[in-house]
Amino acid sequence: MMTLEEKLRLLCEATGVTGDEGAASEVAADLLREYTDKVTITPDNSVHAIVYEAGEDKPTLLFDAHIDEIGMIVTHIDDDGFVRVGSVGGMDRRLLLAQEVVLHGTEEIPGVVLTRAPHLQSPEEHDKVPEVKDIIIDTGIPGDELKEILCLGDRATLKSRFVRLQGDHVSSKAMDDRSCAVCIFAALDELKGKELPVNLAVSFTSQEEITGTGATNTAYTLHPDVAIAVDVTNAMTPDSDKLKCSELGKGAAIGIAPALDRKIWKKLIALAKEHDIPYQHEVMGGHTATNADLIVTVRGGVRTGLISLPLRYMHTPIEVARLCDIEAIGKLLAAYALDPEL
């Protein structure tokens, strides 16, 4: 059996920019087949699984994480082979120059975001970062050849190298939100062979970063009575606002927000205390900016909770999370499945 870190690496290395999640969805679906045969990939690239069937008369609990990652979309290929792109999701423009890029055409094409030579730059330009639409990607391939393997609408990602840092810190692109899929796998490991009072469904949904299509359609199709969304939350760094942050290594961040179900978050806190699972609060005044905002609205309303994984440097190719937090969330999800608030 693969370790959580191996699953995380496999998922993070898969490509699945919003709206074109197919490759990442395949990887996630394969990993789910360790737990159940009832795995499907929907036409809009979400992965659905029925992991446990308690019976038709029993309520259904859904664990959800999104499968898409931020990236770019090819908008123009010129005759010299320079590629222009648009942003898909919230790209951090501050890190684009001289960045390694992978263009996902009929093959993986390496590229580099070009910098303007110093002699062409005014001091003002030097203080600014370009818009995504203005960056130029060099592939080294002549335009006519490039157009045979890359077309408009193909996606691009920033190159990333999954790396284990000191302790249990891991860094990669797409930890948002593949690391939360791994939280769900950790829960399924805990639940193996155990009897549950509910039907348990799992979804890895498409298009969270923009449109929210995957979560909305998934909540309709799987029709859960209760759902827990799992997503990432900004973890503290010395320069960030303490009140807006969770902390790495301090466990599951339990979501507290108007749209979230009060009974569910209280139950999650009670379970964390009962089972000695590290947890912290994440209080949000308005939207949670996660799939929870969408799942709650579907089919007459779904009572939903949110658990977040602390993550540093969100929306960069070097997002950092800790395995101990992933394990804590896995334990909390498992505890909830065994003793849910319905």
Binding site: G90, D92, R93, R94, H126, D127, K128, V129, E131, V163, L165, S171, N234, T237, D239, S240, D241, K244, R312, Y313, M314, H315, T316, I318, V320
Partner: peptide, 18 residues
């Protein structure tokens, strides 16, 4: 890895600044 203050905590002006 080279980190910095996360995108989501920046002002609109900071997002476009080197």
């Amino acid at each position: 890895v080279v980190g910095a203050k996360v995108l989501h905590h920046l002002t609109d002006e900071e997002r476009g600044k080197a």
